[in-house]
Design a protein around this nucleic acid. Structure first.
Length: 609
RNA sequence: GUGGGGAUCGGUCAAUGGCAGGCCGCCUGCCUUUGAAGCAGGAGACGAAGGUUCGAUUCCUUCUCCCCAUGCCA
């Protein structure tokens, strides 16, 4: 049993104390004004997960009280995404708009009880009357309007007698409350707009606050889980339920998900789409569920990700690699391996019979024996990855180089005999020899090679398009912009790279959209829906971890390098305080440089360990 | 002298009035027909000050810092 979070603890306490009777009943309540993103996935997993864990139910409810922002397209995509994630609301699909009539009756009830009134103040006037964070507000001049008059006005609001903004219905609470949400909040506003479901049946719409708790109540929700920004609304949520005398669910708030190098704001995601910074809501670079799906993420990996990031009230930001590791783990177990060369370099095996072809046995998935074997064609001319050859290899480079021998995966040892270049001095081809004795990859004489590289037979290769993705933004917190700056300035101009002449092994022919593979040594790839019969298109979901690359990217720094307290340590080693003391401390690369005697200090790298 | 919420390894989430644990990341080693995966090991934290207590990261007080709230959005 996984350790439980504070919400589960609260739920258990509620049941134990008899505040609610099991089973638990939760709901996922999106507003249909955009596509779902990974942040929603956290909420979905939480709500449906809670129901699952406590043997209860979870509803899907659209919080559609603002006709100006909502569309059917979003309603459809949201349902599709929740279902894809693997959750089932069974027959409990609801819309807040289904409750408009009931909500109207609730409002009338509050008017009759002298708890609500029709206000004539304009939005600007209301702002003035509301007061400030430190000063109390003033009562609306209409606050003491007679009940009959309120009733009459409210029904005429509904009947469409007034233009937008002419009146509003407000709760009569406390204009001096330190919580501004309690200063006579608006319950209904006049909006002559067509609603995606109710059409023109209404021209007054309830606000979120006058809708949410009551909708929860109507659906007999026990625990209403929402994000932190609604904490200040809880007193209002409670007030409406209490004054209306209806079933009263408990609202519990948690911190929404933040992921670095990306954005969760629907407004900005919409801007990315509308301004064509991406190809659509499902662009594989988007943090949307549909984007992640197209990118090749599995529902399991996303649920797993949500599981491991946890739930708390601390405003945190998850590091992107947590998401990447979640999909790697899943795909490592289920994706079949194939060989594909992204940047082909031709290799001619000089001692291999011209025109001949043989088939070699390859394992489909070393993690899953049931995946079986396949045949891979081998011939005299091959393609290998350009990165797998260096004419003048540095000491830590294990792959192919002049005079060096490596293994072609599942095939033979080959040795580079010579390099062919064009007039510009660029390498165009490698001339190699193979050792027939090493068929399958083993040398009978027991000799070893330091590297095994992937390859594909040139005449059998399947040319295809591969799209490589990088982070959408080049800064960890794209919303953090200097004065006068724009978050768009942080867009990564190189977030998409299209490789149009990748050469893949023939087994990939006919792969269907959505199928996932590991291209050995390169990463996980999925077939994009843009694929056609004669042009397969792959998306790279995520690269394999690469300890060679990470080492290359972080070159060793020289001894004597300085770093201040609080800075990121540039190298693992023994650090010495600058100046006359001999105090040293051992710090790991990436960690924060410590203080010295509780004071900030400058450290010098003394010894690399 | 606004109200509400929050603060634990680099990141994130736990537990606990008595050795602070997991995951991601980082480092080292082993293994390897993927520089992958796997296995083993390592470095690394209780925002500050008081108080209660034999003992406080945990309980209390004060402070500091961060987030939310001044829509007829949700």
């Amino acid at each position: 049993m996984k350790s439980s979070n504070f919400i589960e603890t609260a739920v258990e306490e509620d049941f134990a104390a008899g505040r609610f009777t099991p089973p638990i009943h939760t709901r996922f309540p999106p507003e249909p004004n955009g596509y779902l993103h990974i942040g929603h996935a956290k909420s979905i997993c939480l709500n449906f997960g809670l129901a699952e864990k406590f043997g209860g139910k979870c509803n899907l409810r659209f919080d559609d009280t603002n006709p100006t922002k909502e569309e059917t397209e979003y309603v459809d995509s949201i349902q599709n995404d929740v279902r894809w994630l693997g959750f089932d609301w069974e027959d409990r699909l609801y819309f807040a708009s289904d409750y408009f009539e009931t909500l109207y009756e609730y409002a009338v009830k509050l008017i009759k009880a002298g708890k609500a009134f029709v206000c004539d103040l304009s939005p600007e006037e209301m702002r003035e009357y509301r007061g400030t964070l430190k000063e109390p507000g003033r009562n609306s001049p209409n606050r003491d309007r007679a009940v009959d008059e309120n009733l009459d006005l409210f029904s005429r609001m509904r009947a469409g007698e007034f233009p937008d903004g002419a009146h509003s219905l407000r709760a009569k609470i406390d204009m001096a409350s330190p919580n501004l949400n309690m200063r006579d909040p608006v319950m209904y506003r006049i909006l002559h707009a067509t609603h995606h479901r109710t059409g023109d049946a209404w021209c007054i719409y309830p606000t979120y606050d006058f809708t949410h708790g009551q909708s929860d109540s109507i659906e007999a929700i026990t625990h209403s889980i929402c994000t932190l920004e609604f904490e200040n609304h809880r007193p209002l949520y409670d007030w409406y339920c209490r004054e209306l005398g209806i079933h009263h669910p408990r609202q519990i708030e948690f911190a929404r998900l933040n992921l670095n190098y990306t954005m969760m704001s629907k407004r900005r995601l919409l801007a990315l789409v509308k301004e064509n910074h991406v190809r659509g809501w499902d662009d594989p670079r988007m943090p949307t569920i549909s984007g992640l799906r197209r990118r090749g993420y599995t529902p399991e990996s996303i649920r797993n990700f949500c599981e491991r990031i946890g739930v708390a009230k601390f405003n945190s930001t998850i590091e992107f690699p947590v998401l990447e590791q979640a999909i790697r783990e899943d795909l490592n177990k289920r994706a079949n391996r194939v060989m594909g060369v992204l940047r082909p370099l031709k290799v001619v095996i000089e001692n291999y019979r011209e025109g001949e072809t043989e088939e070699l046995e390859a394992v489909n998935n070393p993690e899953d024996e049931s995946a079986g074997m396949r045949k891979v064609p081998f011939s005299r001319e091959l393609y290998i990855e350009r990165d797998d050859f260096m004419e003048e290899p540095p000491k830590k480079f294990f792959r192919l180089a002049p005079g060096r021998e490596v293994r072609l995966r599942y095939a033979y040892f080959i040795k580079c005999e010579s390099v062919v270049k064009n007039d510009a001095g660029e390498i165009t081809e490698l001339r190699c020899t193979y050792d027939p004795e090493t068929r399958g990859g083993n040398a009978p004489d027991g000799r070893k090679v330091k590297a095994t590289i992937h390859w594909v037979s040139a005449q059998h290769a399947l040319k295809s398009e591969v799209r490589l993705y990088d982070l959408l933004f080049k800064t960890a917190d794209p919303g953090d912009v200097p004065e006068g700056g724009d978050w768009r300035d942080n867009l990564n101009p190189n977030s998409l790279e299209v490789v149009s002449d990748a050469q893949l092994e023939p087994a990939l022919a006919g792969a269907a959209a959505g199928e996932r593979f590991q291209f050995e040594r390169l990463g996980y790839f999925t077939v994009d829906p843009d694929s056609t019969d004669d042009n397969l298109v792959f998306n790279r979901t995520v690269a394999l971890r690469d300890s060679y690359e990470t080492k290359k990217k972080q070159p060793r720094v020289p001894l004597g390098t300085k770093a201040r307290t609080g800075e990121k340590c540039p190298e693992t080693g023994v650090w010495k305080v600058s100046g006359d003391t001999a105090d040293t401390v051992s710090v790991n690369r990436g960690a924060k440089m410590p203080s010295h005697n509780d004071k900030a200090a400058t450290w010098e790298l003394h010894e690399i360990t």
